[in-house]
Design a binder for these strands. Structure first.
Length: 492
RNA sequence: CGGGGUGUAGCGCAGCCCGGUAGCGCGCUUCGUUCGGGACGAAGAGGUCGUAGGUUCGAAUCCUGCCACCCCGACCA
């Protein structure tokens, strides 16, 4: 094996790092905490972007772009917001370099100090709401539905490829509305968009819910989220949608005239998903042999490997594969014919498995004689010899959709088998220590109790699931009354 | 921010304890043979040993400072 991957059972975290590098998704850069997203990884991100962008536009949003740099004073206008982000901001203080006196390299020119420092955006609420003040005068300007694809920077003390990097790529939607009801509806709508995207395209089952006060976005009245379970039983927040109330409108003085010509503050939402979704994709489906990609997001859905000995055979077989590839492309399938003559078939099989290509086709003289072709599925590792006749249709209509739904099903079963109900604190702790996973339990609704549980067990409330039925019970920690179970887990 | 680790060829590492002018595997280049699960042979190319200073006739190796990155923990809207 050229690229050896630590097995999941041996060390899940090492497996993840090995896999991200071996599958050529990303690598560490020479900048602390910042990664280089490699072409294959970026291609997956582009597929995600394309789909999400389409869904945003279908729900009436437009893209725009705001500055990377935010004046320091903006950040402090919303008190909770600055509290949440102050500790992880990169700050621009100067605008010029000059040759150092000793002639070795350059230094920051002390004379080029900025009047006001600029913050590299950790998120764009402040710069955007400062801009919205000029864009919104009347109820006729509302709703304002904007999305931005951008990079942001949060000076994280501990980083991990895709899951938590100092700089990451994301989209952030920022909308403005005339009423609270409309803003709340928008918040929920975007949560649905994220959930649909996760389930149908990423094949990741998610739990929709509301964050507790402790976990809420800094400056939001409510944070809605989707939570997914990774293979090690830990939770990963896969997307958030915030109802911001009038907090930012008040901080940035964004008012509009109603039909009755009264001045009112605007209601806001923001919502985002990031390259962290790449980490979720890896940790939901992949195995010890490498990446496993859902067809909907695979940059290459079908790879074809020719088997041959002579030049004549090579020409014949690659020609045949090219024909099949053309037919598949017409059927809407993305294909690569791996016609590299330097690499042997065995090498290619291993390589494309590592990269998670959903379907692999191999064609050799033996198959050709019998009118057959070998097809292998990445999800189940099944290999089958099938008639060439009808193979295009079978792959496009049957196999790829089947892989997509199988991955989702498998992930759902994994999650279900590791979701528990706990009625006592002892039970709760035992599940966390011995099994890990999601725990549905009663909670008294106070931040203090949540904090205590977190300190003692590392588990936090991932969300209050939207679909959790009301059920009276008592808090596992304090014994106080509770009306519904909430979702606890250790989180990434 | 606390603890640990690592910086030597594109990548992964050995050499350091015990100082003598740098080596292995993969990859790369050329040629030939191979090709149904990570082929083989031959010939090549490639290194300011993180950095600054010190000790010494001589430093990748010993000493001191600095820098960077990684891992574990705390933190993480």
């Amino acid at each position: 094996m050229a690229n050896k991957i630590t097995s999941r059972s041996e060390n899940y975290s090492e497996w993840y790092n090995d896999l991200v590098k071996a599958a050529d998704l990303a690598e560490h850069s020479s900048v602390r905490g910042c990664m280089v997203i490699k072409p294959y990884g970026y291609a997956i991100w582009e597929k995600m972007q394309a789909q999400l962008d389409k869904m945003f536009k279908e729900t009436g949003h437009q893209n725009a772009y705001f500055p990377l740099l935010i004046p320091k004073s903006f950040l402090s206008k919303e008190a909770q917001h600055v509290d949440g982000f102050a500790k992880e901001c990169a700050v621009v203080t100067h605008h010029r370099l000059k040759n150092s006196p000793d002639g070795k390299g350059v230094i920051v020119d002390p004379e080029a100090k900025l009047e006001e420092e600029l913050i590299i955006r950790p998120t764009s609420e402040t710069i955007i709401w400062n801009t919205y003040r000029d864009w919104i005068q009347s109820y006729r300007d509302l709703p304002l539905l904007i999305n931005q694809w951008a990079n942001v920077m949060r000076w994280e003390l501990r980083t991990r490829l895709f899951l938590r990097t100092a700089e990451f790529l994301w989209q952030e939607g920022h909308t403005a509305h005339a009423t609270a009801e409309e803003a709340i509806a928008e918040t929920k709508q975007m949560l649905e968009v994220y959930a649909t995207f996760a389930e149908e395209f990423m094949a990741i089952p998610v739990i929709k819910g509301v964050k507790s006060e402790n976990e809420r976005f800094a400056g939001a009245l409510d944070t809605y989220c989707i939570e997914a379970m990774m293979q090690d039983g830990k939770a990963l927040q896969a997307g958030t949608s915030h109802f911001l109330g009038q907090n930012f409108a008040k901080a940035f003085d964004v008012m509009f005239s109603t039909k009755e010509n009264k001045q009112e503050y605007v209601w806001a939402t923001s919502w985002g998903v990031s390259t962290r979704l790449m980490g979720a994709l890896v940790m939901t489906h992949s195995d010890d042999d490498g990446l496993v990609l859902p067809p909907a997001l695979a940059p290459i859905q079908v790879v074809m490997v020719p088997i041959y000995k002579t030049d004549e055979e090579y020409d014949l077989i690659v020609g045949k594969l090219n024909d099949l590839a053309s037919a598949l492309k017409i059927a809407g399938v993305t294909v690569k014919v791996d016609s590299d003559r330097q690499k042997k078939p065995g090498w290619k099989f291993a390589e494309w498995e590592l990269k998670g290509v959903p379907v692999r086709i191999a064609l050799g003289p033996r198959d050709l004689e019998q009118g057959n072709i070998e097809m292998a599925r990445r999800d189940t590792k099944e290999k089958a010899s099938l008639p060439i006749e009808g193979i295009v249709d079978k792959i496009a209509r049957e196999v790829l959709p089947s892989i997509q739904s199988n991955l989702h099903q498998r992930a759902l079963e994994m999650r279900n088998s590791r979701t528990y109900r706990a009625d006592t604190y002892a039970e709760f702790k035992e599940i966390l220590e011995q099994k890990g996973g999601f725990i549905l339990a009663h909670w008294d609704g106070t931040p203090e109790t949540e904090q205590k549980i977190k300190e003692e067990t590392k588990a936090t409330i991932r969300c209050i699931p939207l679909d959790s039925p009301s059920e009276s019970g008592t808090c596992i920690y304090t014994g106080k009354p509770s009306e519904r179970r909430v979702l606890f887990a250790e989180a990434y």
